[in-house]
Computed example of a mutant assay.
Amino acid sequence: MGYIELAIAIVAEVIGTNFMKASVGFTKLIPAVATIISYIICFYTLSLSLKTLNLSVAYATWGGVGIILTTIVGVMYWKQEVNIPQLIGIGLIVIGVVVTNMFSEGH
């Protein structure tokens, strides 16, 4: 169940981050409220996942997958460009998440 809760936390974080961008510095009410609601869901489900998942595994996965999904949404929806150094950095994060998951005890 921990990984399901973690997946919900990741999706909620990505949604919240995109609403944050759409809120234009919290000057637009509906996206600002959606940001807050999304982050409440995110942190609540992340906290639930920590009942069964190792903290380092959960946090590394949450952060790493969140960065990947946020980048994809940024490119596809917000039409942002990603350069080679950014892709290398994201690749290093992915490697870190994989290593953390592979060699962590109790996950």
Rank of each mutant, 00 (worst) to 15 (best):
M1Q: 13
G2L: 06
Y3H: 05
E5V: 00
A7E: 00
I8F: 01
I8C: 01
A9T: 06
A9W: 12
I10Y: 05
I10S: 10
A12Y: 01
A12G: 06
A12W: 00
E13G: 11
E13F: 06
I15A: 15
I15K: 07
T17L: 07
N18C: 10
K21W: 10
A22V: 09
S23L: 10
S23T: 09
G25V: 05
G25C: 10
F26P: 12
F26G: 11
T27W: 00
T27Q: 05
K28F: 11
K28T: 09
L29G: 06
L29Q: 10
L29R: 14
I30S: 15
P31M: 13
P31S: 14
A32R: 08
T35E: 04
I36R: 09
S38V: 01
S38L: 01
S38I: 00
Y39D: 14
I40S: 06
I41Q: 06
C42D: 08
C42F: 04
F43T: 03
F43S: 04
F43D: 01
Y44T: 03
Y44F: 14
T45N: 11
L46P: 01
S47K: 08
S47A: 14
S47D: 08
L48P: 01
S49V: 01
L50N: 06
K51M: 06
K51Q: 10
T52V: 03
L53Y: 06
L53Q: 09
L55E: 11
L55C: 03
V57L: 15
Y59H: 04
Y59V: 07
A60P: 03
A60W: 02
T61W: 01
W62T: 02
W62R: 08
I67Q: 15
T70C: 09
T71V: 13
I72A: 04
I72L: 08
V73G: 05
G74A: 09
V75P: 04
V75K: 11
M76C: 11
M76A: 14
K79F: 09
K79Y: 10
Q80V: 02
E81C: 05
N83P: 04
P85M: 07
P85F: 07
L87T: 05
L87W: 15
G89T: 07
I90Q: 08
G91A: 06
G91N: 08
G91K: 10
G91D: 11
G91L: 10
I93R: 05
V94W: 11
V94F: 13
V94S: 09
V94L: 14
I95P: 03
I95D: 03
G96M: 10
G96E: 13
V97H: 02
V97L: 03
T100H: 08
N101F: 00
N101D: 07
M102W: 11
M102D: 07
M102N: 13
S104M: 14
E105D: 12
E105F: 12
E105H: 14
G106C: 04
H107W: 12
